[in-house]
Amino acid sequence: MGLPTFLSKVGLPSTEAETVALLRCDEVSEVRCFVLGPRKISNIPQACELWLRQNGLEDKAQLVIGERPDHYLLEAQAVHEPGVVPVFWTCAVYGKEKELFFGDAVNTHMFLFSQVMPLDHMQLACLPGKLTLEAVRTICDLELLPGHWKRLASHPSPKPLLNGLLDHNPQTTWVEANSNGFAAEMVKSGQADACITTETARLEQGLERLHDFGTPDMVFFGGVTKHGVELLKRVHESLSLATIGF
């Protein structure tokens, strides 16, 4: 096998805009985007769809929903179909970003594409009709939870937003969710009493907002596998030769 080597960018355009333009060429039949689920209610698929719209790629794009970035990276790397560029999406605060970069993604261009997008309102939510207005104020102002609440769910990335609640409520434990969308599903199904989730996921699951953490900007990255990079290099070479008259 030998020691790993990072994938070279030699043969690709010098700017992201020029590289995106290659995706619009006829030689690329499909841009297959691997994103975090469930469905399209988490931030990563929303950022991916925004990027596709802004770059005029919706008509040749397909979204593949996965449970974890480290899993769907492997799915993207298994794609070797002619004309298909696999793009796997992560975000700047994904906890295992460095493990992917120096690990399974070493033979990809993990940050070839990027998209800045405000996060879909990150919020603390629970089942509706369970709390009085006074109880909600107690949670938000004093960080004191109802005594019967035992589990708070979130993806690991925004977990620090729960640190105050967990410190002040020793009867309550944190449970891990694979995404903000999955966290909302855990509350809906009774696996957790409250969660950090997105506005889209909250509405889909019919949850009640307790606190809105806000919508800060986040950077999302579209990584391209070796198969996709080699295809883009061939397209770029073909266009370059056509330009100089060969």
Rank of each mutant, 00 (worst) to 15 (best):
P216E: 10
H155S: 06
I244C: 06
F101N: 04
P38E: 05
I196P: 00
D217Q: 14
P216R: 08
T243N: 05
G228Q: 14
R24V: 05
G95I: 00
V84A: 01
V31T: 10
M1C: 11
S240K: 12
K98E: 09
H155C: 04
I41N: 04
L203E: 14
R68P: 00
S238F: 04
R202V: 04
T5W: 11
I196D: 00
V64M: 05
E230Y: 14
G206K: 08
L119F: 05
T132F: 05
L144Q: 15
H168C: 15
L133M: 09
L100I: 05
V20W: 06
G164V: 03
G214H: 00
D193A: 11
R53Y: 14
A125T: 00
R234T: 12
P160H: 10
K130A: 15
K159P: 12
F213Q: 10
T132S: 11
L131A: 03
F111P: 06
L241E: 10
M122G: 01
G214S: 02
V116W: 10
V31F: 05
P38D: 06
V28W: 01
A242F: 08
T215M: 12
P82R: 03
T172H: 13
G95Q: 02
S14A: 06
E99N: 01
A17V: 12
Q205V: 09
R202S: 03
T173G: 13
F88C: 02
C33W: 03
E176C: 10
I65R: 03
I244D: 07
T173R: 09
T215G: 10
A78P: 01
M218V: 13
V10R: 03
C25G: 10
V235K: 00
N163F: 11
H155P: 01
T90R: 02
V64C: 03
E27I: 04
L127K: 08
R32C: 08
K96G: 02
H80N: 11
V187W: 03
D26W: 02
E27R: 08
A194N: 05
T243Y: 04
F246H: 14
T225G: 07
P118Q: 06
L112M: 11
E199P: 12
S154I: 09
L210K: 10
S14K: 07
A242Q: 11
D141N: 07
G83D: 04
L119E: 04
E27K: 08
H121D: 10
N169P: 07
T138F: 13
L112D: 04
P158H: 04
G228M: 13
G147F: 13
